[in-house]
Nucleic acid binder design. Structure first.
Length: 197
DNA sequence: GGTGAGATTATCT
DNA sequence: GATAATCTCACCT
């Protein structure tokens, strides 16, 4: 049984939050059962000053609107045919966010397998942001939800053995921002997504 | 095990 | 009409 983490947990600087989310649990309670996974990889997006962020230069559109809200809200975003999950960070009016990129399944293996496919290796279930949201059943319907509320929430997890940082993935031509070491992941964990230069 | 191209759709200019 | 915080599959080593 899992319980949502204190909402005050989200009130810390975005880089710190990104690092501290590694090792926590992400839980989705569905009518069919509970899916739980331990977060092993995140990325921080530093709103106004980060060329790779959707909210760069305080760009405020219908899509980025939620990032200007309270820390702990859910920012879901459609990329091609996939949904990506973020945790809003920073005080109200400051559009920071943490992208949840990968997690290690802990509970609900059969539900995940049903969604992702019988033939896949277990490590291919959740080792990327699009795959993770599909495995957990997270959709755009959660845009604006809070990560401290059921049925989709962050719970206190067992932590991570060793958290390391490196450059972020898939942000192409974002100038200097490409090199910022704002990706955090558990060292030597096979559920961490592959880095593609 | 690794690299490279194409898919495919909401969102913004 | 261009773009994208990705995924999958084919082909190479």
């Amino acid at each position: 049984m899992y319980f949502p983490i204190e909402k005050s947990f989200f009130h810390m600087p975005v880089l710190e939050l990104a690092r501290n989310l590694v090792g926590q649990m992400i839980v989705h309670e569905l009518p069919e059962g509970v899916i739980a996974a331990r977060i092993v990889e995140t990325e921080a997006y530093h709103g106004p000053e980060d060329r790779a962020a959707h909210s760069y230069g305080n760009r405020r559109t219908k899509r980025t609107e939620i990032m200007f809200g309270e820390a702990g809200l859910v920012y879901t975003y459609q990329m091609h045919t996939h949904t990506l999950m973020n945790v809003v960070s920073g005080p109200v009016g400051t559009p920071h966010a943490v992208l949840i990129r990968a997690a290690e399944p802990v509970e609900g293996f059969e539900l995940i397998r049903d969604r992702r496919g019988e033939h896949l290796k277990m490590t291919d279930w959740t080792n990327g942001p699009g795959k993770l949201s599909k495995a957990l059943g997270v959709t755009m319907a959660y845009y604006g939800h809070h990560w401290g509320d059921e049925p989709l929430f962050i719970a206190e997890g067992p932590g991570a053995s060793e958290v390391v940082s490196g450059p972020r993935v898939g942000i192409g031509n974002s100038g200097e921002a490409v090199h910022y070491p704002w990706r955090f992941y558990e060292n030597n964990n096979s559920f961490v997504s592959k880095y593609r230069p």
